[in-house]
Structures are given as structure tokens and as C-alpha cells.
């Protein structure tokens, strides 16, 4: 393999993760990892190695349609061997558009990336995490990189080269963008996650679990019904296939049955403990420690046990 391995994410911390993936792919091959920036260099993008600034868009806050067009233009000119994009909601669109614009194959949601001869290789989950697939695509190739898998490596002050990609006029116009509700949690960085499921009978009972999460120095997550169907918690608390993927030190599942679409989002947790009234609930198959019981009795008991140790 020769040429560069490009990495990009619109999200600064994900950008640092994807840069680590690009470094892995470039290692052992005669390739150079290059971090892409579009419009402007961002302070939070601190991966070591070269940066390539695509000039044209006025700011670094670019929608996916613009990012894809800018990267495609630069790519046609500079011919990178591989382009890695963080698998965020924006990132999946950027990578997919790029694949069509450049007519090259595109892997998705990949981790453990490497250069395998003349191909880009890696692993991904399938069937809601029941199966691991080894995947490959001949170079030049594109991949979306699973978020939360690679550790970011930070260093300051790297060389920036520039490439002018000109103006891009998107079909889709952004009318407004607002942060989701205040107090938004960052589940991906939480060491402990207390997670609530349908075993919680009413919204008014959630503060009890929030208290427990606080006492455990953790954050509160939930399964899909609580956020999407019932609307008791904002969507960013939703852990699962279509929500956030987490891997905390401790995942405490309270009243969660443990359907595959939920466990797909938490199966890489270091230790999993579960409380459920149904002894046959699938969550116990995905747990290290299980208590068959009513969370309304167990949660106060856990809080008491924690308090007695202080």
C-alpha cells in the first residue's frame, strides 16, 4: 500500500479517535496518516501527524453534504489510499456520499482496522451484536469507524498543509441547530452507568435511579422504550443499537429485559450487573451478577449498602 490514510470527523473528540485508527492502518504499510480539517483547523483536534486543511467552506461547522463534496474534490486530486470517517450520524452520510462520488467500496461501523496487503480490513458487529464479522475492501477504500473504540492520542503543534476545494452549494439548507435539552449526559465517558428499563413503572420514579447513579459517581441511561416510546428521558440517554454505544467499568441494568437491540449498545462493558423480576430475562445471560427481584426493593437496599460503607 502507498499513499495517505485520511481521517475525518465533524466531532472533535471522534476526530482524534479516527486519527488513531488511521495511524493503525498506516503502520506497517508505506503510508502516512493525515487528519483532515474542513474550513478551519479546530483547537480540539490534537492527533499527532500531518493535517490537511480543505479550504473553501467558511467555517469548520460544515454539514455532511458539504464535507463529502470537499473531501471528494481533494481526494480526486490527491488520491489517498483510504479514507476513514467517524461513524456518527453525520459521518455515515459523509462516507456514503463519498463512496458514490469516488466509486469506491465502503466498510461500515468497523473496529480493529488494518492494512491487509492491498485491502483495508477490520471487524464489525452484525445481527445486533450476536455475530462478529471480519470485513475487507480492496484499496482505495472508505470506512466508517465505530465510535468509542479507539483511544485518542493527543499531541500539539503539527504541520498543516492546505488544499483549496472551493465553494460548495448544498441542496439541503440548515435552518436551525440547537443542542438537545440541557443537562445532557455524556454516557460514553461515564465509568458507571445505571440504566433503567420498563421495570420502572412511572416517570416520577426516575429520580430514585438518578440518585443511585449519583451515589455511584455514574450517569443514568435507559433502554429504548423509556426514551423513544414513553419519552421519560431525552434520546441521548438511550443505550442500544440505534442509540449510544457504551463500555463503562460497571453497567447496572435495572428492570431491563435485555433484548439484543439493547445489549448491542452495552455488551462491551467491563462488568455488568442486572436486577429484574423475571428470572428468565435475557439480560441475565449478558450479566456477570444478577439479582432476581423488584428494583423498587433492590435499589433502596443498594443505596443503603453503599451508605453503610461510607
Amino acid at each position: 500500500m502507498s499513499g495517505a490514510v485520511w481521517s475525518y470527523s465533524e466531532n472533535e473528540s471522534v476526530s482524534n479517535e479516527v486519527a488513531s485508527a488511521a495511524a493503525d492502518v498506516a503502520k506497517g504499510a508505506s503510508a502516512e496518516p493525515v487528519v483532515l480539517e474542513i474550513g478551519a483547523v479546530r483547537a480540539g483536534v490534537r492527533a499527532p501527524g500531518a493535517k490537511l486543511l480543505l479550504k473553501g467552506p467558511a467555517t469548520s461547522d460544515v454539514p455532511p453534504e458539504v464535507a463529502a463534496e470537499a473531501i471528494a474534490k481533494a481526494s480526486k486530486q490527491l488520491q489517498p489510499a483510504a479514507i476513514l470517517i467517524g461513524a456518527t450520524r453525520y459521518g455515515r452520510e459523509i462516507a456514503s456520499r463519498l463512496a458514490v462520488k469516488l466509486t469506491v467500496g465502503c466498510l461500515s461501523e468497523v473496529s480493529k482496522l488494518s492494512a491487509d496487503g492491498n485491502a483495508l480490513a477490520g471487524e464489525r458487529n452484525a445481527f445486533a451484536g450476536k455475530v462478529v464479522a471480519k470485513v475487507s475492501c480492496a484499496l482505495p477504500a472508505i470506512a466508517t469507524v465505530k465510535v468509542g473504540y479507539y483511544a485518542a492520542v493527543e499531541s500539539a503543534g503539527t504541520a498543516v498543509t492546505e488544499s483549496d476545494v472551493g465553494q460548495v452549494n448544498p441542496l439541503v439548507k440548515v435552518v436551525s441547530r440547537e443542542k438537545k435539552a440541557a443537562g445532557a449526559v455524556d454516557l460514553r465517558s461515564a465509568k458507571v452507568i445505571v440504566s433503567a428499563g420498563r421495570g420502572v413503572k412511572k416517570k416520577e420514579d426516575l429520580p430514585m435511579l438518578e440518585e443511585l447513579a449519583r451515589e455511584m459517581h455514574g450517569a443514568l441511561g435507559c433502554s429504548r422504550p423509556l426514551s423513544s416510546d414513553l419519552g421519560w428521558l431525552p434520546e441521548e440517554h438511550h443505550i442500544g443499537l440505534t442509540g449510544v454505544t457504551v463500555k463503562p467499568d460497571l453497567y447496572l441494568a435495572l428492570g431491563i429485559s435485555g433484548q439484543l437491540q439493547h445489549t448491542a449498545g452495552m455488551k462491551d462493558s467491563k462488568v455488568v450487573a442486572a436486577v429484574n423480576t423475571d428470572k428468565d430475562a435475557p439480560i441475565f445471560q449478558a450479566s456477570d451478577y444478577g439479582i432476581v427481584g423488584d428494583l423498587y426493593q433492590i435499589v433502596p437496599a443498594i443505596r443503603k449498602a453503599l451508605a453503610s460503607r461510607r
Binding site: N125, V131, V132, K134, V135, A138, A141, F284, A286, V292
Partner: peptide, 20 residues
């Protein structure tokens, strides 16, 4: 173009303790 392909598939290994 060269299509992305699945090379192999295997069941996810779970090493949970299952202590009740």
C-alpha cells in the same frame, strides 16, 4: 469498483460470569 465484502463470521464471545 471492488465491493466491500464479509470475509468470515463467528458468534460473539461472551465471557460473563453469570453469578446469581
Amino acid at each position: 469498483y471492488r465491493q466491500a465484502s464479509v470475509v468470515s463470521m463467528s458468534a460473539q464471545q461472551s465471557a460473563r460470569k453469570h453469578v446469581m
